[in-house]
Amino acid sequence: MSLNVELKSVARHYGRVKAVDGVSFSGAPGEVIALVGHNGAGKTTLIKLMLGLARPTAGSVAVLGQDPAAGDAAVRRRLGYLPETVSFNPALTGRETLWFYVRLKGGRKGEENALLERIGLAHAADRRIGTYSKGMRQRLGLAQAMIGTPAVLLLDEPTTGLDPELRQQFYAIVREMQAAGTTVLLSSHALNELEGNASRVVILNEGCKIADGTLDELRHIAQLPTRIRLKTTEGGAGRLREWMGEPAGLRQINGHIVEIDATPEDKAAFLRRAAGEGAPFEDLDMVPPGLDELYAHFLSGRASR
């Protein structure tokens, strides 16, 4: 399968600042790749490198088989981009703005109307953008990125400032694009929302890639413990602790809730035992390590090296 996006040991330095340093990854059609990192980790610079707005100091970038800095119009037409902050002219209406971008990209006649419908902005299409809410502006931004059903979609912090419902709608559209074979690259620092939405996560720190893989793979590498929370009857915590054999790291939350951190191996053994007769608890919750924990793990691993 040909790759839509391919970065080979790409570096971009601004003077002495290494915004991106030796990053390699690739994106196949139908993949949703999340670029995760703190502010200033190099996410936006990577996206600009893929857009050809910045040239790499070293290494090579290929988008749809071409160097994006060459500005090949055929490649640009198959590329969608949503900047981190974009403020469209508030004096124009949503439809006028989208019409302009459709024309600029050589899109179908009337495509702006279809997109406005799809993005749920049809009712406000003829209002000035100055009257739009933050979420509506962000949706308009996404609509212009979707013109011409791009093969590569680059979204810079697309969900920042969106409420949970809009976030869900947004990821539903991303999944549609993914199903149509689009490679979606999105940067984020809100990690929890990527669960189930990103097929791969690339963790960046200070311009370097520190982890790359599916969430499951990353969890496996990190060997992070699963938090198991047990609930018993009021005052039954003592008996519960006894039954569990007072493991190290046990935390008593209150009179009837205790928590332990179980490594992947311990977890299975514990669950087999808990399934037996006479286990003194009423309810059990398991919280697998979230992206926040994963991220913290990889970052601390980096720091201690």
């Binding site: 857009l51 500005g71 900047p83 974009v86 050589g106």
Partner: peptide, 14 residues
Amino acid sequence: ERGTMTLLLSYPVR
């Protein structure tokens, strides 16, 4: 400053 230039230049425009 408004961010529309990066967007514009991501289109097939010189």
